[in-house]
Amino acid sequence: MSTPTRTQRRAERLDDPRFERFRTLRARRLLVAALCGLLAVEGVLFLFIEASPVAVLIPLSLVIVAFVFCLGALKASTRGIEELPADALDERQWQLRGEAYARAYRIGFGLLVLELAAVVAWRVAEWGTPGTGVLTAALLLPFHVGLVLPTMVTAWSSRA
């Protein structure tokens, strides 16, 4: 008998029946809402990082830990459809993943347009040079959103 590949082990771990409680539509959508909340809190914390870096570092660390756990639960709730390679998925999961990525692309594009509009508005309003916190948030938040958006969109779907 051949030993399972890394992909097969990952697929088995994400399909673990112990995570069944996260796989109801309600649980998945609650996890998506929690992750959105954590992203918002992260953004707010970055605004204060310049004024009191040490005071912000502790809640920021907690947010990052919660973010990792939340994302792990979310990936288990979707059985990793959005991250596993094609040979670990069947045709229905493959189709679902395609739909999720198409929707995530549209949402991501919309968010990017909003961010660019905010930059233009900032320039037009002549609010001056943004601080380090705002710049860090403007760079890190889109990266984090891009990282989790396909998982969030897949989890939000009623067919995952």
């Binding site: 399909d15 059985r79 998925l89 069947d90 045709e91 229905r92 999961q93 067919r159």
Partner: peptide, 10 residues
């Protein structure tokens, strides 16, 4: 048939 059991349900 080589699919996930959830797919059989669907």
């Amino acid at each position: 048939v080589g699919v996930h059991y959830q797919t059989i349900g669907y």
